[in-house]
Design a protein around this nucleic acid. Structure first.
Lengths: 169, 169
DNA sequence: TGTTAATAGGCAGTATACTGAGTTTTTTTT
DNA sequence: AAAAAAAACTCAGTATACTGCCTATTAACA
């Protein structure tokens, strides 16, 4: 790759648009694949905790701002609200998160980390961070921040799409 | 964003590592989010066809190389073999793909597009392509290829991870 | 104030993406 | 040739990530 072989005989050169634009030149396809790779790296580094990247993202958010409702959590994480609820249920079952109805607005369910949840979030940090570093390892150090900046520009520029809107603050 | 607000009072400046390394500076988190955005863009452009990005990727591969077994398809697409089987079942139910046991090796199941599948793959191409273009629209034209190249380098450099190995040829 | 809007969440259903265990067929080894 | 190993696939189970439809509560406005 990068070294994708071009071993077609002259008679079978690509002719249609579709054949000239194969998978590995589609950014959407490549982003999906890189996303999968990050999951694999994350699991490799964090398998002892049995916590997924999305679960850890949620726990990070709860650590910084406890007692948020599910909608706000979804917006901070760029997650659908139903998905947030699913993840919270799993974390609650494992005793890492507590949920309760809000007093002020009885529609809302507020979530926060338990003590155990706090502890796990801190203990896991190093492993999570190692997965992040390994993901960018193929780049030169000075390229890594540029890549992150580009990702943020792309996310920012396309933010309006989908049910999850991603309002970071 | 980009314009993430920094509205903390002096007394509550971030102190722990975790607070200094929030979600939007984690490449894994950003890649997940960009992946979601691509899905949303893809659905917006292609909703009339009711075909997902992964399904279209599979159809593209089958169009270029018919009668592949599920393992090879998985490697070309960077998909798990069980996932390939799932997607093929759905496409088969809709009459876009045909599957049959191989004569030479009775363990293998070979898949190919039906005529309808061929037709849909070609018709959808323009819409799929528009989603790809919209994803990169926030970048300057000269930055777009650089971004794709960087993605390929990252995928290539981390290729060994996970159950799906992604051998493009 | 009473009706309507909007908001927050729940529930059912579907697609993706994996793990782990098992079956059948082929290949390799002894 | 028989036994062991490998390959291709299936099945069951789980987590993510959505859509669509529903209920309860709150806010808006007529």
């Amino acid at each position: 790759m990068g070294a994708k072989k071009e071993n077609l005989a002259e008679s079978e050169q690509p002719t249609t648009l579709l054949e000239r634009m194969p998978l590995w030149s589609r950014p959407g396809f490549l982003v999906r694949r890189l996303h999968q790779i990050h999951y694999a790296l994350f699991f490799e580094e964090c398998k002892e905790f049995d916590i997924t990247p999305v679960q850890y993202g949620l726990m990070t958010t709860l650590k910084m701002r406890p007692d948020q409702d599910q909608n706000s959590l979804g917006q901070e994480l760029g997650l659908d609200r139903t998905n947030v609820a699913d993840v919270l249920v799993r974390l609650t079952k494992r005793g890492l998160v507590e949920r309760r109805r809000s007093e002020e607005d009885k529609r809302m369910v507020l979530a926060r980390l338990t003590e155990e949840g706090e502890r796990v979030t801190e203990t896991m940090y190093t492993s999570m961070q190692r997965a992040q570093e390994r993901l960018l390892e193929p780049l030169l150090p000075q390229e890594r921040n540029a890549f992150i900046t580009t990702l943020i520009r792309l996310i920012d520029g396309n933010n309006q799409h989908g049910r999850t809107v991603f309002k970071p603050n």
